[in-house]
Structures are given as C-alpha cells and as structure tokens.
C-alpha cells in the first residue's frame, strides 16, 4: 500500500504542547491508517500521546507525516487542517 506523505510547518504559538498534542493524537486515532510523524530527527506514532509530546515540536517546527492504510489521505487531510487552523487557537 502506498504511503501518503505530507510536510507541514507548525504555525500555532505553543507548538505540539499538551492540548494541541492531545487534539493531534485524537484526530489521528479517528482513522484506520497508521500515521507516523517525524520532527527534530525524532519519530512518533501519531496516535500515541507520549511520543508525540516528546517530539518537542515548537512553533516553526517542520512536521513530516507519513500515513499508510485505506483512509491515509483522509487522515493526512484532517491532520493538515488541524495544524493549519492552529488547533483552534487564536494564535
């Protein structure tokens, strides 16, 4: 199965801090596809909160997403939207 890949830049102020990380994980977990996220030379399962927090992703960090599975496109789209909409934060 093909891997869907996407590169994003974190635009929200606090980065993948507790609440945004929780939303990120909760969004990834809605999909069957497996999603990996790579940042700062570290890799995390996008559905696991601790590894995602341990990425240490801050504002301006580059996130590379890799999704595999029947709904990989939808998963990448949903995560992209979340990041681009700054996790619902004003800044």
């Amino acid at each position: 199965m093909a891997t869907v890949e996407k590169t994003l830049i974190l635009v929200n102020k606090v980065g993948l801090h507790a609440r945004p990380a929780a939303l990120f994980v909760q969004t990834a977990a809605r999909f069957q596809a497996s999603v990996r996220v790579v940042c700062n030379g570290r890799q995390a399962d996008a559905k696991r909160i601790l590894p995602v927090l341990q990425l240490g992703a801050e504002q301006g960090s580059v996130l590379r997403l890799f999704a595999e599975g029947p709904d990989a496109d939808e998963a990448i789209n949903a995560l992209t939207r979340l990041v681009q909409e700054r996790f619902g934060d004003p800044e």
Partner: peptide
C-alpha cells in the same frame, strides 16, 4: 492523568491507558 486521559479518549484498552499513565515518568 493528562496523558492517560488522552490515551483513554482515543478508545485505547485498559492496559494501554495504564502503560501511558506510567510512561509519563519519562516526560521531561
């Protein structure tokens, strides 16, 4: 509590939620 709450919120089973609560020790 925070990590386990997120783990539980994505529907993970009991022992995974427990493991996540324990793993919070390693959070810097």
């Amino acid at each position: 509590a925070i990590l386990a709450a997120v783990e539980a919120s994505v529907g993970s089973p009991l022992d995974e939620v427990l493991a996540t609560a324990e793993s919070a020790r390693s959070l810097e």
